[in-house]
Computed example of a mutant assay.
Amino acid sequence: MITLKSAREIEAMDRAGDFLASIHIGLRDLLKPGVDMWEVEEYVRRRCKEENVLPLQIGVEGSIMDYPYATCCSLNDEVAHAFPRHYILKDGDLLKVDMVLSEPIDKSVLDVSKLDFDNVAQVKKYTESYAGGLADSCWAYAIGTPSDEVKNLMEVTREAMYLGIEQALVGNRIGDIGAAIQEYAESRGYGVVRDLVGHGVGPTMHEEPMVPNYGVAGRGLRLKEGMVLTIEPMINTGTWEIDTDLETGWAHKTLDGGLSCQYEHQFVITKDGPVILTSQGEERTY
Rank of each mutant, 00 (worst) to 15 (best):
Y141L: 10
L246N: 10
E159C: 02
L163E: 03
G17V: 01
Q182C: 00
K90D: 09
A160F: 03
M65Q: 12
D91Y: 03
P212R: 06
G198T: 07
E39G: 04
V268D: 00
Q57S: 14
K96N: 14
L30M: 15
G257V: 13
L89V: 02
K124A: 09
S129R: 11
A80I: 12
T237Y: 14
D245L: 05
L20D: 09
D91N: 15
T157M: 07
L221N: 06
Y126F: 14
I10C: 01
K253W: 13
L134S: 07
R158L: 13
M210H: 14
D66V: 01
S108T: 10
E264D: 11
Y263G: 08
E128G: 03
T254N: 05
R46L: 12
R45L: 13
V170F: 02
Y126H: 15
G132R: 02
P203T: 09
E39P: 00
V79W: 00
T127N: 05
L89M: 14
G178A: 09
S260V: 08
L89I: 04
A185V: 05
E232A: 15
L56G: 05
K96Y: 06
A7V: 07
Y190T: 03
N52I: 01
T71W: 04
E11I: 04
E159H: 07
C73I: 08
T237E: 14
E9N: 06
F117D: 01
A180G: 04
K125V: 08
G62H: 06
G92E: 05
T230R: 03
D91R: 06
L196V: 14
L223W: 01
P212S: 10
V228A: 07
R173N: 14
L95C: 10
H81M: 13
I64Y: 08
L134W: 05
L95M: 11
S113V: 03
C138K: 03
E61H: 12
E166H: 11
L163P: 00
R219V: 15
L54T: 06
R222P: 10
S22W: 07
G144C: 03
G220M: 05
M37L: 14
G202F: 11
F19H: 12
I23V: 15
G175N: 09
I276C: 08
K90A: 13
E232Q: 15
E159Y: 03
S63A: 15
M13G: 06
S63E: 14
S113H: 06
E128P: 02
E39W: 07
K49W: 04
T71K: 06
D272G: 11
M234V: 06
A251I: 07
P104H: 07
I269P: 01
A160S: 14
P55S: 08
L277S: 04
R46H: 11
D148P: 11
E149Q: 11
M205I: 12
G215K: 04
A16I: 05
R8I: 12
A142L: 09
L229Y: 00
S279Q: 10
G189A: 10
Y184H: 09
T230Y: 02
T278H: 11
G215P: 08
V120F: 02
N172P: 07
A70Q: 03
V211W: 00
P55I: 08
A251P: 05
V201A: 04
G273C: 10
S147N: 13
P212H: 09
E41T: 03
P209I: 04
P233V: 02
G215D: 04
F117G: 00
M227N: 02
P146V: 09
C73G: 05
L31M: 15
R158N: 11
C48W: 01
H199C: 13
